[in-house]
Simulated scan of single mutants.
Amino acid sequence: MLDQETIKTFITIVECNSFSKAAKLLFKTPATITYRIKALEQQLGIQLFKRTTRSISLTLAGEHLYQHCCNWHRWIEHMPEELKEIQNGIERQVNITINNILYSPEAVAELLVYLKKLFPFTQFNIKRQVYMGVWDSLLNGDSHFAIGATGWESLDTMFNIYPIGEVTWIFVAEKDHPLAKINGKLSNETLRNFDAINIEDTSIKMSKRIGWLLSGQREILVPNLQTKLLCHLKGVSAGFLPKTLCQPYIDKNQLVPCEVINTRLPSQLSLAWKKNNMGKVINELVTLFTNNNPITEAFYKNIDIKR
């Protein structure tokens, strides 16, 4: 009913919006392709086109079939190459998780350009996670490779770990913020008068971590590091930011570093990937990062102590 020739004919008619134009492209007579589509409609018992003397348009059923036919036709055309890649150990799909601290749209785009040239038929899915959300995506989700898993030890023996460095945190306040005017170390009692701005841990099944929060202190949750930075720059509150991220604003005197009693320890970050079923794509990713390929450099913008 829906052989390859019929699918191709149906798609061409839709894209040309004309039986006669489609016939020319397919080197068929208009009568031939009209007969093929009418036969298909009779077999399905469904009208696919609304026809007038001057135009044609798809019915709702026709639109649904068109979407599926495009997918089928594309898959049939590329199937031989895809099967060869699978046989050669190239994964059909690779899911990559990136820690919010290291996430960069530019870095992701450059990495995908590189990977798609090598592995054109592999489907890549990129997700951004926060804190334990990175490990959660590895242990309980469908992630195959993580950039910025917390810690330097694997949480499960089925994963390889490769330390990439540390992120140092500095407590900063906007230059006109009340906390920026206080000399000496800021006490917990003083800090509790101001909100802590944090990015919520995205873990679902694992225990969530809190970036930095004093008992009894109010908290503002924001979705990403860029929003947190802007909140600090606009004086919404004060708090910890990665050293490399806030240093340019400290140099411009837009942010002022403050001393606090309860400092935030450096964040240790690693690459993590499953040991079993490593295909050529994962191997290539591991090689890129462990060999410090220039393509990976943009992911390290907030890492100030590299391993």
Rank of each mutant, 00 (worst) to 15 (best):
W75E: 15
F10Y: 15
S215Q: 13
Q47P: 00
E110A: 09
G148M: 03
E81F: 10
E77T: 11
G141W: 04
E81Q: 14
L83M: 15
G239P: 05
A61Y: 06
S20E: 10
L40Q: 06
P257L: 06
I261R: 13
L83C: 07
A173N: 06
K243A: 13
I90K: 03
I282E: 07
S207I: 10
S237M: 05
Y66R: 07
P80F: 07
R307F: 12
W212S: 11
P178N: 09
K208A: 12
T202A: 09
M1P: 06
W152Q: 11
F194C: 01
V222S: 01
D156I: 03
L255N: 07
S104Q: 11
W169K: 05
S57T: 13
N88G: 02
T53H: 13
N253G: 05
R51L: 09
S20Q: 10
E174Y: 01
V108H: 07
W152T: 04
F171T: 06
S143A: 15
C69P: 00
I170F: 06
M278S: 12
I98N: 08
K38P: 00
Y35A: 12
N302M: 04
K38D: 13
F119E: 02
L245Y: 01
F119K: 01
R128S: 11
F124M: 05
V94H: 01
D251G: 04
